[in-house]
Amino acid sequence: MERRSTSAWNASDWGKLMRISQEIKRKIIQIAAFGYSNTYLQNFAGGQLYKGKWKQFCNPGMNCYSCPAARLSCPIGAMQAVSGAMNFNLSFYVTGFVLAVGVVFGRAVCGYICPFGLIQELLYKIPSPKRKLWKGFTYVKYVLLVFFVLLFPVMITNELGMGAPAYCEYICPVGTLEGGLPLLATHPELRKVIGALFSVKAVILVLTLIGCVVICRFFCKVMCPLGAIYGILNKVSIYHMEVDKEKCVSCGKCRGVCPMDVDPVNAPDSAECIRCGKCTVSCPKNVLSLKFRVELPKKSQ
């Protein structure tokens, strides 16, 4: 009797340990990626930007290049900057980079590398009533991607043929938080030109932050155009989820722990899945696994 209860305790304890261990590994990667993306913390004091050559390369995740600490460029900002420039209508360089990263990792970038993803997860730890998001809102990010990132910078131009980065200008709360607030705090001359646009962006930022406290990864689910691109590529990405449906007992634990409200058994390649792995460790039958898809041609006998 005593032996049976000990083994039951061990199994449960082992499950908990696995969950903690997986989550710690993911957090270490997230913190390392955050640190690498924002190496120049000392720049916050003077409010200047890093101006080195690393900035011609894009960060795989969302991290504003106007953040004083940023080492790399934001791919969404860079995409709009090039397509809004006089000589170009589409950024092959940035689109190719995002496509390459997305084909390999899909939305694992959101779960492991994105600096703003880590910020959102920390915000969600603030004690508050927690809510689920209505699924229809997840399509908003595709509208933002098509209109604000791809079309408006090309279509709405000035007399010189230059378009503004519409997503950065009117929507992006990441830029307001990481770039706007630190720069306004350290530059009195910038504070003098604050107008209605900044007020709109500040309201969007506040609503986004409240959303992130109440709904897990609110920005990822609703507003992130980069997540929209990686989400589409999740369907074919090399890093993917495998499901052994024959072993599944339909207990629903995977669905219950998913921060993105995905049902991993029925939709393992969902555009919302950020490959965080919480479902894989919660499964009592080891039905789910995350791995790199390597399919080599079989030799004929």
Partner: peptide
């Protein structure tokens, strides 16, 4: 172009 944009303060990005 990306480097030129990223090393200067992007007024649009920060809401100005």
């Amino acid at each position: 172009v990306v480097l030129g944009k990223a090393v200067n303060v992007c007024l649009e990005c920060i809401g100005l």
